[in-house]
Design a protein around this nucleic acid. Structure first.
Lengths: 261, 261
DNA sequence: CGTTCGATTGAGGAAGATCAATTAATGTGG
DNA sequence: CCACATTAATTGATCTTCCTCAATCGAACG
């Protein structure tokens, strides 16, 4: 119905080369997440006649300054959140995947606080916020799902902050890839071959690094065999073992930790 | 709004230009915020017999790993959110003031994701989450207030990320002071004389800097007369003109911006 | 009065930014 | 289909910022 057949993972397509313990637990997590997203989408579709909108790379789903009227659920595709400060700095402050909600930033001020820009072709479901509030009052599970999504966003944002504040550049890039792969895994998508839909400059923006540093970090990861570039183009990345990226992050941290002991 | 004027503004002209307009608008904002918080607290108090809990500096309001059962509203005092990652890194990821909610991070995973530690004496109102859900269904305004609080948290977290990613150390510290002062102003507290309840190390943790860098930045701000240390102790800071901190941030950014033009 | 913890300040070093040159991929018009 | 222009990515050399290490100082506390 809503959960497209393609998105249901056959266990074999999920990553193979990982510790048995984490593999099964992450598989369970992925299944739980897929179920939750499917339930949530069903709840939403059931509650209102959602407005489905097809977006292409570069399209703005909403923009900073726009009056807030709708939330959106991302049904497919990838979206970046771009924040522009009053003094002209701008930065990518978030990335969204299937099942994520967009526009929570607009609730507080009645005006959107940042741009949501599609990174490729996808579909969003627009939901008028007042209708959502009304529907939530009648459907506790829908309300819980909305809170759930907001809570996830808060946790994710904090993890981004942590990555930026506590990891050196190489580890930050590795962590970025790890998180991206995990986001895909949670949604039942394959993680061994991922297509970054962002330029080095965009990745750098998100991680607080320059594009050169991102490029160097990726080259180093490739040299250490933690990633491989698919032929023709350096945006397709093969990650033979996602778990190994954890090890790399740990290793970057090790010198500092060692001195503490 | 976005396009910085070609003629780079001298800090003084810039500050002077914005001051009269923002002064009254910030006052209006503060009044609106105070009203909103008061309304929200009344809504909460009206909906359940909230459990009021007195906390002292160092007390944990909740801790990472604890099963999530309650949200809390901070009625008075200051609270830091501390996140500990799986690999041992830890960081302050947020600061909370009167009227802020605590514990949203626990909704998604049913377990708290970080510690909430009181920075001084204060009072929190604990609210069982299931009771809140039930009450929200019956009281649209309460639900809206909860969403409002979560939205604010999301926007605030993103602004933290932006500060860390796009500002040099000195500007980051200035921005931190500016934000702290603004948080106080929004709550109707005086901003000219503020008491930091954090050590240099804690500020550094929050900003992704070492304590030495924070100390140096504060010394520089003091040297430039943007802040003054109250006698006896360097935790009490007088900010003669909060708006001037904006100018300082701008000024730190200016060299980079100038080359872009 | 000494101990401890937090803050300051200086000197040196390292991570990452900046500047610059080259290469690879993509798109465009003839 | 191919030259050409354009944008993205890589890599190197240098420089700046901030971190690290270390010494000193001040305040608070027992």
């Amino acid at each position: 119905m809503f959960a497209t057949p393609a998105s249901v993972p056959s266990p074999s397509t999920l990553r193979r080369a990982v510790e048995p313990a984490t593999r099964s637990s992450e598989l369970a997590q992925a299944n739980a997440h897929i179920r939750r997203v499917a339930d949530m989408l069903a709840l939403v579709a059931d509650a209102f006649p959602v407005h489905r909108r097809l977006v292409h790379a570069g399209d703005a789903i909403h923009q900073a300054g726009q009056v807030f009227t709708h939330l959106c659920v991302l049904n497919s595709g990838f979206v970046k959140m771009v924040n522009l400060s009053a003094d002209g700095r701008d930065q990518i402050v978030g990335l969204k995947f299937r099942g994520d909600w967009l526009g929570f930033d607009g609730i507080a001020g009645a005006v959107h606080d940042c741009d949501a820009i599609a990174l490729d072709t996808g579909e969003v479901w627009a939901i008028p916020y007042d209708a959502l509030l009304a529907a939530c009052a009648a459907r506790p599970r829908l309300m819980a799902a909305v809170h759930d999504a907001m809570s996830r966003e808060i946790v994710g944002d904090r993890n981004s902050l942590m990555s930026v504040c506590t990891l050196p550049a190489d580890a930050r890039v590795a962590d970025f890839l790890r998180t991206w792969a995990q986001s895909l895994a949670l949604r039942g998508l394959r993680t061994d071959q991922i297509m970054l839909r962002m330029t080095r400059a965009e990745i750098g923006s998100y991680l607080g690094l320059t594009l050169e540093t991102v490029s160097r970090a990726l080259s180093r990861l490739a040299r250490e065999q933690l990633i491989h570039f698919a032929d023709k183009g350096r945006r397709d990345i093969r990650i033979p073992d996602v778990g190994a990226l954890d090890g790399f992050v740990q290793q970057c941290l090790a010198p500092a930790v060692a001195t503490l002991q």
